[in-house]
Nucleic acid binder design. Sequence first.
DNA 1: CCGGCATGAGTAACATGTTACCCATGAGCG
DNA 2: CGCTCATGGGTAACATGTTACTCATGCCGG
Lengths: 224, 224
Amino acid sequence: MGNMLLMPELALPPEAQSLADAVVKAVRHGVAAGELVPDVTYSVYQLADLLGISRSPVREGLLRLEEAGLIEIRRNRGFRVLPPQAHDIEEIIGIRLALEPPAARLAATLGTDDQHALIGATLAAMAAAASQDDENSFWPADRSLHDLLLRTSGRPRTATIIERLRTTTALLGPPTTASGRTLAQIHAEHEPIVTAVLARNGAAAEAAMRTHLEATAHLLVTNL
Amino acid sequence: MGNMLLMPELALPPEAQSLADAVVKAVRHGVAAGELVPDVTYSVYQLADLLGISRSPVREGLLRLEEAGLIEIRRNRGFRVLPPQAHDIEEIIGIRLALEPPAARLAATLGTDDQHALIGATLAAMAAAASQDDENSFWPADRSLHDLLLRTSGRPRTATIIERLRTTTALLGPPTTASGRTLAQIHAEHEPIVTAVLARNGAAAEAAMRTHLEATAHLLVTNL
DNA sequence: CCGGCATGAGTAACATGTTACCCATGAGCG
DNA sequence: CGCTCATGGGTAACATGTTACTCATGCCGG
């Protein structure tokens, strides 16, 4: 039980506002970096020791991760990482295709001018990050843009759902440039969406969002 | 802070398999029964005392409820109940309409015979409960049926999402018979869905599910 | 050689102790 | 009379102690 030989440098991201939050990020990073591998049983004790904090926030973070489907907690045994399967990716894309295009339509028709301005600004931020090939700025902006569109459509719960699903797909390793698109190309896919939204053209916004997601789906599936 | 005058009998449901789980159920029941009201700040200490357990499972349960959007936790202040708004109901129905009909189609086309048999059995359970006007059996069966259809479609994540959303709407008080439909009527709405699924007729299953959800939506909205 | 069973290590779940924080209150000053 | 700010109560968040469970291991009888 619990060989625990490796499991190198797991660090606490200092930007988290609670330790439980930090644990979530640390574990996600650890999985993405291959430091935490599937089929090995870890324990709350180990992780707490490793991170230099107590078991309470570790447990809280793990419970959240379990709900997100990233890990499985086995009573009195420990927890294991459950890597997302190809099948999961397809399901997630399916959900996003069902929810985001209609929301884009609503964002176009019933968003306020202020909200539209914010959406435009976020697209500009994506453009700036893309021009500098700065992934650290680009992906958060991408995420914000989708989130903003969802919230502008008056659907906060949908936004939360999508945000959570995105978290899962992000574990496969960010859909980096290696996936086949440059940052500039991805930015270009978003532009028609935003243009349609700002023009309050609901149908066009919905179609553009669908096109974008389908392109993403194609990449994720082939790139698995 | 925390007048705490009333707040009568909150009991721990014994059928929960962890105390944190029991807390979730107790709070939901308390809200539905009007024992926990919005705009009053409660604390983990109070609730733990009241339930006769320690603060740890209470905290865990509250964190889950916060994630579900039922309560708001204010750091170092306590938590308040956030009752679902009419607007939330509309959003939830919208999500279900986007996700469940396509899933019903898939359940029809690619479910195994075993899965279909289970679905049929669940519908029979609904029928039995309806004939005896037994809400305590009926609603769980209704829930199971929707869940089974989702899982049969090969979409466990979608099933989890819907299950969680249903939990939220259930807080308004179960859509009781008072909502305008008898249990028999609700059962009757499900029958064409199951019939289509068992016949492996995807299009019909999708349409039937859509019809059912639209009827539900109409009731929930007018009955608010 | 094999299958039931005691045993013990390791753990999640729960209980309790501690800390640092937020904010309402009200006294003191302008 | 209004404004600032010290103060203290109450809290979430975190740390640590305790309990009861799960399961692998190995002994023993068949």
